[in-house]
Nucleic acid binder design. Structure first.
Ligand SMILES: Nc1ccn([C@H]2C[C@H](O)[C@@H](COP(=O)(O)OP(=O)(O)OP(=O)(O)O)O2)c(=O)n1
Ligand SMILES: [Mg+2]
Length: 1200
DNA sequence: ATCCTCCCCTAC
DNA sequence: TAAGGTAGGGGAGGAT
């Protein structure tokens, strides 16, 4: 019957099994042993364990009740589960089942429940229960009435053939489909239960574990070896082979199909494919006419060799497979059976040797050297014997390849298939390899094939002619070498099964259609629980949690061709580092959800969600294993440096107290006792701190306070230095020869005014707990708060004057001498290229790590020197960064430096983005060159005339939309379609251009927006879809774009003519993220505008309050309170506008303005008047700001 | 030179 | 309809 599966009368042939023998179709050995669920549930953990117990209890209860009833055996062997309201009621049906020998399941059990009784099902359930026996209650009542078991097919609720299940045609039903995917409380498990790739991955791990345990428990006896030896010993004399290394690769032929055929022997010889979608052979419309259907996007997991003859491949879509092979017979998955056969397979091989590396459920590598020696057999003899045993015991054929290494073994297997084996002996290697195609080499996939094509290399013979250098330049050092060796049949990998797990993850990239954040959260909790189970199974906890999102590619259609598939996507990943490793679903969920909110991704656009756990530590039951600490960061180095200045006693630092306690002066080195205050950093075990970043933040605060203490020490050192210098002067005056030949720097270093000697730490201490000032309190004064000049020690270090007399005992002053040496030591300019600043602005730079923890006096590094040489004014320095003013007079020189710093090999850096196998392009990663351009862009081009600002008169806008486009997906489809095509195209382009720009702009080191990459879909046989939209430039249509003018400005806004020449680059503000107080101080020093937007997000203390979200909240609060509009809010709004305009974050501004508009518009009476006035004022300012920064008019609606 | 982080690629 | 998961190798580019 299966041959005709595709034809109309038997279209659900695959369900025939079910007709005669409802679920469960097959009893596996495990099931027969007992409760088939048990193992799963043990594995799944507590909650499920509970469910099992509960299910069993209910069953027991049911049986007890049944005993009492007056029973018939009408429903023997039938187990029902009632879904939803029925008539008669579930209770009544239960009673009827009891009476007539059936079983009633309160919970649906996939394996044991044979029929589901329902009168009505939501669409979601229909999809879930697709292919299951869903029957109307009348089946029960009628059967009882007629006294015999009627065929349940006659009572099927939604017979597949007639296709009369409710279709989600209406919008309402459509929303139910969406709810299914995200909202179904069991979606994760539902999905995994059906996912072949999930099973494959799990089985791989389990196979590895099986091998591991076989290795661990092996007593060195191998029953198979003896049989093998005896079998061949009785044969007539055979040529003896020299002992040498032999590796075998063995792999079942079309595994899933072979297993599937065990119970379908009549199908042998026909083209078969294993895949989902039992009714995928007909279109809905075509069902009646019995037309073939060729557009199924169900993936073929495995197809047999008959099917492969027609050109089919594993992984192909069913639809296209049917086109190539119309006779294809489709059989369903039988996951448990695959697993069972796999285990037998491993056990068989393990009876010969345990030198096994598990590759997958149907595939392994075996080092045969020992078996062959022990059994005195040749490779071919062994493999023949083994393959026969495998076939005898599993009923499936496996093919094998043997050779002196893994590569040859693998390649030989491919040649040997199906149902064969092949041994590549050493002399044959050369000729064997010459004919191997490069695409057949392991590790060569879509991308490598592209590269080989470019090289014009097809087979290994040609590959051998390519030089190692060339290969390495194309594939990288390791892969280049690998392919170089592979071409010659060389491979030095050894068979090894044991590896340490480095990550644990769970992804679902199918069926994700969510409409609310709540749905996301619900789903993510489920996923987190799954991950917890996996972590627990692996006995690990993780320090690093990563949220992996697939977001619909802006160019991709909302719904891809593949039903509920993810389509083309961008990958967005974000991670948190946790101080304590965790396995808690709760924590993972909380952090993951927080990460999701941080990404700002629209839930509706999410097509895939994953959680990955890394930096694992073992949680051995036995183990009080030393746990791996989170990564040491610069702070710890800073602390080390601090410790170096003055020897810290070994005891704990003094004055360990709470965070806010003031620094105790009496404890400082020179004020009171010998040592400065230092507080313990918060212990990593502090339960109130979860994220590493939180800990760092706190630790830095402590460090700063410690540094305040150190300041005193340094001051004293400085005093000493002065004294020492004075002595030198006195000495000079006395006519004695100077101690050093060069000493002018000492004289200049003597500050006329000791007050100038100040340290950031002192300032910071004042404000440690003060909140951020909303505006710069020092904005009026141009003077830096701190000034210090340190003369460059020139190029040459000081040389001791040989003529100088030795120091007297009195003059010996080790501390001062040390510091003097330190200050005058010549240092190479080796950090220079990495750290730079742009003229005329206070600039912040990160100090080399060697200087972390050092305070001002010690900043004798090339950067500081350079700054001073250039006439810059040193402003301040703190743990890891420094601030200074630079002089524009040196602009050219600075630019040269920049050029030099970024001299870059054009050839190499050209990264136009790489097309992946789906025809998508990934963005070129921002290179140094791009970075440099960004920097140069910051420098205002001298007299390049700006384009005249566009005319301001607003065209009449329709409807309530104030800012027309934020995303094409947000536009009402109808409205969109009503627009002229070219206008639509233009809008789309603009939007995409903006997106891309934003994606580049937002590059945060360490954060995932940096790379917008296209989700790699595995190599499809199908040709990649034609590129949907070429990245062609905007249509030059003279038509007025619908998009607002704000979107026109793509460039960094040039400063207006009258503004002073100003530009800034914050090279690395990462430390600011850790030091809110510092941020405040820097804010006071730096005009807000000088901090690039790309950095702002990293300083939430500074800019967080200016995020659109916060602004919206403030607006709401303010409007809600009975007070009138306050000045502070207006100022904040203006600041916000400045930042938004400057950073092209117009959509943020849009959000805020929209909210303000709506809030104000919602008011009535006097309050409305007051607020309307404020609205008008603020928006007027907005327009002015936009005019200044964007050179373009901002269209903001006025209140009616 | 060697590390680290964030990806891409590959295999089943 | 359809169930496009998962772990590890390694490259690019930056920091040390
Ligand atoms: N894209 C793929 C590739 C494989 N598999 C599953 C089904 C296969 O039966 C099993 C083993 O994979 P193989 O690569 O070994 O392929 P087969 O065993 O099917 O064929 P053969 O080994 O004969 O080439 O993994 C899958 O689901 N999807
Ligand atoms: Mg196979």
């Amino acid at each position: 019957m299966e041959t005709k599966a595709a034809k109309a009368p038997n279209q659900h042939a695959a369900r025939q099994d079910m007709v005669n023998q409802p679920v469960p179709v097959k009893r596996t050995a495990r099931e027969l042993d007992g409760d088939g669920d048990e193992e799963d549930d043990k594995w799944r953990g507590g909650h499920h364990g509970y469910m099992v117990v509960k299910k069993r209890k209910l069953l027991q209860q049911f049986r007890n009740e049944a005993k009492e009833a007056n029973s018939s055996s009408l429903f023997r062997g039938i187990s029902i589960h009632v879904n939803g309201n029925t008539s008669p009621t579930a209770e009544e049906l239960k009673r009827l089942m009891m009476l007539h020998g059936g079983t009633y399941h309160l919970y649906y059990n996939t394996k044991k429940t044979t029929h589901i009784i329902a009168s009505n099902l939501p669409y979601t359930k229909i999809v879930q229960l697709y292919g299951k026996a869903v029957v109307k209650p009348a089946w029960i009542t009628e059967s009882i009435r007629q006294g015999c078991l009627l065929p349940w097919r006659d009572f099927e609720l939604y017979p597949v053939a007639s296709n009369n299940a409710p279709q989600p045609a209406t919008e309402k039903a459509g929303s139910e489909v969406i709810a299914l995917k995200a909202g179904d409380p069991n979606y994760v498990n539902q999905f995994y239960a059906r996912s072949r790739l999930h099973h494959l991955s799990m089985w791989k791990v389990e196979s590895k574990q099986l091998v591991q345990s076989l290795q661990d428990t092996s007593d060195g006896s191998f029953p198979g070896r003896e049989r093998l030896r005896q079998y061949y010993a009785q044969l007539p004399s055979r040529p003896k082979e020299a002992l040498k290394k032999v590796i075998m690769h063995i792999d079942f032929d079309c595994f899933f199909v072979s297993v599937g055929l065990l119970s379908r022997p009549h199908l042998r010889g026909k083209p078969i494919a294993v895949c989902h979608g039992t009714t995928g052979f007909k279109t809905k419309e075509g069902a009646k006419e019995g037309q073939e259907r060729f557009d199924s996007k169900s993936e073929i997991s495995s197809c047999n060799y008959e099917a492969r003859n027609a050109g089919l491949k594993n992984g192909m879509y069913l639809g296209s497979a049917k086109q190539m092979c119309p006779d294809l017979v489709q059989i369903p998955y039988e996951f448990e059976e695959y697993k069972r056969i796999s285990t037998v397979f491993y056990e068989i091989v393990a009876s010969y040797t345990i030198d096994i590396e598990a590759i997958s459920c149907d595939e392994m590598l075996v080092d045969c050297t020992d078996v062959l020696a022990a059994s005195s057999t040749s490779p071919v003899e062994f493999v023949g014997f083994l393959r026969k045993e495998i076939f005898d015991r599993t009923g499936c054929t496996a093919s094998a390849g043997l050779g002196k290494n893994q590569l040859l073994a693998r390649l030989a297997t491919r040649k040997a298939k199906p149902n064969g084996h092949m041994y590549v002996s050493d002399p044959e290697v050369k000729s064997f390899m010459n004919n191997v195609l490069v695409k057949d080499l392991p590790g060569v996939g879509y991308s490598a094939v592209e590269k080989f094509d470019k090289l014009g290399v097809k087979d290994c013979g040609e590959l051998q002619k390519v030089s190692l250098e060339k290969l390495q330049s194309v594939f990288g050092p390791k892969n280049g070498l690998k392919f170089f060796n592979y071409a010659r049949g060389t491979d030095d990998r050894v068979v090894a099964n044991d590896t340490v797990r480095k990550s644990v993850s769970a992804d679902v990239n199918y069926g994700m259609r969510m409409t609310s954040v709540a749905q996301f959260e619900a789903f993510f909790r489920e996923l987190s629980e799954e991950v917890q189970r996996r972590l627990d199974t692996a006995r690990v906890k993780a320090h690093l949690i990563t949220l992996k999102l697939l977001v619909r590619h802006p160019d991709a259609p909302f719904e891809p061709d593949k039903f509920m598939g993810c389509g083309q996507c961008n990958a967005v990943n974000k991670s948190v580092s946790l101080i304590q490793p965790t396995n808690s679903a709760e924590i993972i969920a909380t952090e993951g959800i927080a990460l999701f909110k941080k990404t700002g991704v629209d839930v509706k656009e999410v097509r895939g969600i994953g959680v990955q756990c890394q930096r694992l530590v073992q949680t051995n039951a036995k183990g009080t294993e030393a746990k791996e600490a989170p990564k040491d960061r610069s702070l710890d180095k800073a602390k080390k440096n601090v410790g170096k200045k003055v020897d810290l006693p070994d005891e704990e630092p003094l004055n360990v107290s709470d965070e806010t306690a003031d620094f105790d002066e009496s404890q400082t080195s020179l004020g009171g006792s010998a040592m400065p205050v230092a507080r313990l950093r918060p212990p990593m075990s502090d339960a109130s701190l979860r994220k590493t970043s939180e800990w760092s933040r706190k630790a830095v605060r402590y460090d700063i306070q410690a540094e305040v203490g150190w300041t005193r020490v340094y001051n004293q050192v400085w005093e000493n230095l002065q004294q020492w210098a004075l002595k030198v002067k006195a000495q000079q005056n006395s006519g004695e020869p100077p101690r050093f030949l060069e000493h002018t720097h000492i004289q200049e270093a003597l500050p006329a005014d000791k007050d100038k000697l100040n340290l950031v730490g002192q300032l910071v201490a004042k404000d440690v707990s003060a909140s951020l000032p909303p505006r710069n309190p020092n904005a009026a004064t141009k003077e830096p708060i701190l000034k210090m000049k340190i003369e460059s020690p020139k190029k040459l270090p000081l040389k001791p004057n040989p003529k100088a007399r030795a120091k007297t005992q009195d003059e010996l002053d080790p501390v001062a001498d040390n510091e003097f040496q330190r200050m005058t030591k010549d240092t190479e300019h080796k950090f220079w290229l990495n750290y730079f600043a742009v003229p005329e602005v206070p600039s912040i730079t990160r100090m080399p790590s060697s200087l972390h923890g050092c305070t001002l006096v010690y900043l004798d590094n090339p950067i500081v020197r350079r700054v001073n040489e250039m006439g810059g004014k040193f402003v301040a320095a703190k743990v890891t960064w420094a601030v200074w003013h630079l002089n524009t007079a040196y602009e050219d020189e600075w630019l040269d430096e920049l050029e030099g710093a970024y001299a870059y090999d054009e050839e190499q850096s050209a990264d136009p983005g790489v097309a992946n196998k789906r025809g998508n392009k990934r963005m070129a990663s921002p290179t140094k060159k791009v970075h440099k351009q960004m920097l140069l862009d910051l420098n205002p081009a001298p007299a390049v005339p700006l384009p005249p600002p566009p005319k301001t008169p607003e065209p009449e806008r329709k409807k309530t939309s104030m800012f027309e486009i934020t995303s094409p997906s947000q536009i009402d489809e109808e409205v969109l379609m009503a627009l002229p095509a070219d206008l639509r195209a233009e809008m789309y382009e603009t939007f995409i251009a903006q997106k891309k720009l934003k994606a580049q702009d937002d590059g945060e080191p360490g954060q995932s927006w940096k790379a917008i990459s296209v989700f790699p879909i595995k190599n499809k046989v199908e040709a990649p879809k034609p590129a949907r939209n070429e990245p062609k430039k905007l249509s030059q249509s003279s038509k007025q774009p619908l998009v607002t003018d704000m979107f026109r400005s793509r460039k960094y806004p040039a400063a207006s003519q009258e503004a002073p020449k100003k530009a800034a680059k914050v090279v690395d503000l990462v430390e600011l993220n850790l030091v809110p107080e510092k941020a405040a101080e820097v804010l006071a020093e730096l005009p807000l505008e000088t901090i690039p937007s790309s950095q702002q997000a990293r300083i939430p203390e500074l800019f967080g309050s200016r995020s659109a979200d916060t602004m919206v909240k403030r607006i709401q609060e303010s409007v809600k309170s009975s007070r009138g509009p306050d000045e502070a809010l207006a100022l904040q709004l203006e600041d916000f506008c400045v930042v938004c305009c400057r950073d092209k974050k117009i959509s943020q501004l849009e959000t805020v303005v929209k909210r303000l508009y709506r809030e104000v518009d919602g008011l009535r009476g006097r309050r409305r008047d007051v607020w309307a006035k404020m609205y008008e004022k603020v928006t007027t300012h907005f327009r002015l700001i936009a005019q200044k920064y964007l050179k373009s008019a901002l269209k903001i609606p006025t209140l009616p």
